[in-house]
Design a protein around this nucleic acid. Structure first.
Length: 264
DNA sequence: GCTGCATGATGAA
DNA sequence: TCATCCTGCAGCA
């Protein structure tokens, strides 16, 4: 379930439990044995997140780069960890915690030039808006350079980093932008609104640990569609106007919108 | 128990 | 545009 908020939470959690400690590493699955051996026993210095990418920095070793893709997951155990499943790509352990990583698209060691290349092809991260003062302007400029529909543009991680399929649909709905609108035809003011809404939604996701876009959602178990406006809600009326929710495909992913609330 | 789909991204065609 | 990576789970028998 990894959009940008999930990745940020992993970074924060892993920094908290691993930074400043020597970490034992192994690859139960065997597909990262050499890398794990290289890291094992080193001290973790810091963990960074940008968009959906994670960077683990070590004393006297290369940087561990992880991208979870669609299936990847971390699991953290404080004590009595179960044995790793056969698919566990990487196990990180200290005296206090055991972390298992399964199913990532990327799990590799990289040198600084490779990290620079990764960051160079990522757009601004709404979760870093306060440290990168010109992020909104960069995002707006990125949109103005593209003629593709904005619903496709904001899934492109080089335009804005960290948005996934749920935030795409919800962000466009909450800013009344029709997903088919060509990116370069969205006004700067509207684009700024979309950036601000993305910041707000992702920050809320980090705080709450799940994606909720309705103003008030009861804590505890709720169906996903009870927390959202349009995503996966083609069987429900629009929460704002009562009209039908439309669905289709854009950038090879399903998308949902309201033709009335989101003007073409 | 099986099937298909999912909050992602890439590389081949 | 499509197949692939590879995991978990909802929905259905």
């Amino acid at each position: 379930m990894p959009e940008g908020h999930t990745i940020r939470r992993y970074a924060d959690r892993h920094r908290k439990v691993l930074a400043g400690r020597k970490v034992a590493a192994s690859s139960p699955q065997g597909r990262f044995t050499a890398g794990a051996r290289r890291l094992s026993g080193r001290e973790l210095l810091d963990v960074d997140a940008h968009g959906k990418h994670l960077f683990y920095r070590w004393k006297r070793a290369e940087t561990l780069h992880v991208h979870l893709g669609l299936y990847g997951k971390f699991k953290l155990f404080r004590k009595n960890p179960p044995p790793p499943t056969p698919g566990t790509r990487l196990a990180l352990t200290t005296d206090e915690v055991t972390i298992y990583l399964a199913g990532p698209t990327v799990c590799e060691l990289i040198v600084p030039s490779q990290e620079e290349a990764i960051l160079a092809r990522l757009g601004p991260d709404p979760l870093k808006a306060d440290t990168n003062g010109n992020s909104a302007e960069v995002f707006i400029a990125n949109l103005q350079r593209r003629r593709i529909p904005i619903g496709a543009a904001i899934l492109d991680q080089s335009v804005i980093a960290g948005i996934g399929n749920i935030y795409r649909a919800e962000g466009l709905f909450l800013t009344s932008i029709h997903p088919e609108t060509p990116a370069n035809e969205v006004s700067a003011a509207k684009a700024a609104e979309l950036w601000d809404k993305s910041v707000e939604l992702l920050e809320r996701g980090v705080t709450e640990g799940r994606i909720a876009t309705l103003p008030r959602v009861p804590l505890g178990k709720t169906a996903e569609t009870d927390r959202l406006y349009v995503y996966n809600r083609e069987r429900f009326p629009c929460r704002v106007c009562g009209g039908p929710i439309s669905t289709g495909e854009m950038a090879a992913r399903s998308i949902w919108w309201c033709n009335t609330c989101q003007a073409a």
